[in-house]
Design a protein around this nucleic acid. Sequence first.
DNA 1: TTCGTTGAATGCACTCAGTGCATTAATACA
DNA 2: TGTATTAATGCACTGAGTGCATTCAACGAA
Lengths: 200, 200
Amino acid sequence: MVEKQGLRERKKQRTRQALIEAAVRLFQDRGYEHVTVAEIAEAAEVAPRTFFLHFQAKEDVLLADADVRVDLALQAIAERGAGEGLPEVLTRAMDRMIADTWERDLPSGLATLRARLAASEPVLQARLLQRYLTAQAELARTLQRAFPDRLDTITASALVGAVVGAVGAASLTALRRGDGPDEVRDAMRQAVALVARSVT
Amino acid sequence: MVEKQGLRERKKQRTRQALIEAAVRLFQDRGYEHVTVAEIAEAAEVAPRTFFLHFQAKEDVLLADADVRVDLALQAIAERGAGEGLPEVLTRAMDRMIADTWERDLPSGLATLRARLAASEPVLQARLLQRYLTAQAELARTLQRAFPDRLDTITASALVGAVVGAVGAASLTALRRGDGPDEVRDAMRQAVALVARSVT
DNA sequence: TTCGTTGAATGCACTCAGTGCATTAATACA
DNA sequence: TGTATTAATGCACTGAGTGCATTCAACGAA
């Protein structure tokens, strides 16, 4: 698993990591808006121009590894059991994503900061939800194919939009009021359950 | 209803409208990223600085009347009748927004333009989402205050997130496949109905 | 070991979004 | 009429992000 990459690649990753760590530290101290890209670069001991060699935009330094776990959800839909109905499949798919988020992102300190900053900075918030939106279309298509006689295109989109919107809003609200990992996870589950009820 | 406002206010609105129309036209012709604020101002025959007197940011020119629609929904919640339950109020609030969208945005092509631009420009997509999130929080707060014994903070957020997410996804899907105003409106209504069922 | 190739990092100059501040000129109002 | 507002403007500035040419260390083949 651990590919012994070349020295060049390792150096590149080291630079990238230095930028992330510098950014996180500075954001923690002074807030997202009050830190310039130039300052991040200086703290990481690279040229300002180098920052944009690794990240498309300032926000991306925080979202770099916050990948949307779409594959897990798609897989969960594919694993549909014989007698399983729509609400069960939907709930299982979302639970899979939530569990992964809870296990990997929420307990780690760095991820908590990311969540906190994302909850308070509109720009970050938007970028994060944008990723979920991109995933929505794919989820909707897969779900419709799994329940072709139950869902038309519009209903499938609406349903996925609803569940993603609900989970997003619930987790954001929980994070904003300072909930811990367990409460945030519960809020997300509650949101899924709410939407699942609409397709009983 | 038609307040005869002072000359100063009317002139201000005329400037604002000129900026919106110039922006829409230019965006249509050349795409969002390839139009500068300076060019919009020039086409509207005002100084560049004036643009930011009317809009906080470049993308706000496309969401100019979104605030009005949020107000419509808030008002609909406030007008809650004696025997009206949560699903009725929610449906009425969303219907009010949908009707306004259908009457004003869909025929003018503004909604289509917005959807098309948002689909092709990630930056714009992120910013538009950000605006919707802000509106969501306000709606959730108001809805919770209207049904304090029925909704906790998380459920209120999840519910509003669900309905906004559903309507957004449904309308986007309808617009993407080239539906006309009536079909888009019906798709949005269908999405609301879906979510409303979860709180019967 | 040598030498040509690759690519990460850099420097420079540039565009554009957005802000702060002071000023102008037209409207509102007493 | 004279005074107070305020929309619009001009100017100078910060900071994000890009295009381009250059440098130099790592790479790989002879």
